[in-house]
């Protein structure tokens, strides 16, 4: 509980770690924009190739990137399936006739039930989920058990595949890029970088320093507050609160018994912290010098130029094609 770090920075070596956070943030924006602009398969494959190359050259732990993608898998799968089923533009690529007969439905139900009970014990849950889904369609399309009371057709159009593919790839690229940023940048540096990158917003009277201070204090207190929440849960568990069980009415009481102490302690904490900060001459809005300074290196210039080139190349390729 004490070691939860927001952003999941993982110490490592690679050149990405040595880069200025500002470079990484700006490059991330450029590359994300590129991912949105790409509209043809070749460029997308090249882009994904470059991304994989970046992971290798930057010595990023691929497993960590994948584990970051895992929660996204179902969303991606649903997006893709949704496109397949409901996007009816473009040429017809494939068409199946689906037979809804009582026996077919029974077979499908058996498949789903088997999946439901087996899934907890399986590795690669996601792939089994997809396999089951495909299996359901395949059973309806191929089995002809008994008389069908209704039939349907499943048509798959070219645009469905294309749009689905690009949505999925873009999301994958964007999430991977952000994961690279947070994996290789300490939260404090990220904060410093963000503050610096956003500083032009001062023109619009947005107080970027104060936002940075707020983020910095949040980073400092998140582990403390999580620890506190855990202690409160234990304290209430000592009084017979079972957070894993209970009816809806009990659930509300359980949450209240956790939230009220949490709020009261946090208010007291922030009051004391404000006093401590003021006593040490902190005045909101006043200029401060900074211990941490960002240093721009040659590698940063190169990285920025490269990411800008990628963006330009992508834009040109779209204009030309």
């Amino acid at each position: 509980m004490k070691n939860i770090v927001i952003g999941r920075f993982v110490p490592g070596k690679g050149f990405l770690y040595r880069m200025d956070p500002r470079t990484k943030i700006i490059a991330l924006v450029f590359l994300m924009a590129s991912a949105f602009i790409i509209r043809d398969f070749t460029t997308m494959f090249v882009a994904v190739g470059l991304l994989v190359a970046l992971l290798f050259v930057g010595r990023i732990n691929i497993i960590r990137v994948f584990s970051g993608l895992r929660p996204l898998m179902y969303l991606l799968a649903f997006t893709f399936i949704f496109q397949l089923l409901f996007n009816t533009q473009g040429d017809l690529v494939a068409s199946w006739e689906l037979h809804y007969s009582p026996l077919n439905i029974l077979a499908v139900t058996m498949l789903v039930v088997t999946w439901f009970f087996v899934r907890r014990r399986l590795p690669f849950k996601f792939f089994f989920f997809i396999a089951t889904f495909v299996g359901v369609i395949a059973l309806f399309a191929t089995l002809r058990l008994g008389p069908a009371f209704a039939t349907g057709t499943l048509n798959i159009h070219q645009n469905a595949i294309e749009t689905g593919f690009f949505i999925v790839m873009r999301l994958l690229v964007i999430v991977t890029l952000s994961t690279i940023l947070t994996l290789t940048t300490k939260p404090t540096d990220l904060n410093l970088g963000l503050e610096s990158v956003m500083s032009p917003l001062k023109v619009f009277r947005i107080r970027t320093e104060e936002m940075a201070m707020i983020i910095s204090i949040s980073l400092r207190y998140i582990p403390t507050l999580l620890d506190e929440a855990n202690k409160i849960m234990l304290a209430q568990a000592s009084r017979g609160v079972d957070f894993s069980e209970g009816k809806f009415k009990d659930k509300i009481m359980q949450i209240v018994s956790l939230l009220v102490p949490m709020f009261i302690i946090s208010f007291k904490r922030s009051d004391e912290l404000a006093n401590a900060m003021e006593a040490r001459s902190f005045v909101p809005g006043q200029p401060r010098t900074r211990l941490h300074q960002l240093t721009w290196g040659f590698a940063d210039t190169v990285a920025l130029v490269v990411s800008l080139l990628v963006l330009t190349a992508v834009i040109t390729s779209r204009v030309v094609m």
């Binding site: 400092r220 904490r269 004391e272 900060m277 006593a279 040490r280």
Partner: peptide, 14 residues
Amino acid sequence: GIVFQNPDNQFVGV
């Protein structure tokens, strides 16, 4: 300067 009672509530830095 003041050193306050609760060590946790005056530690500003990360």
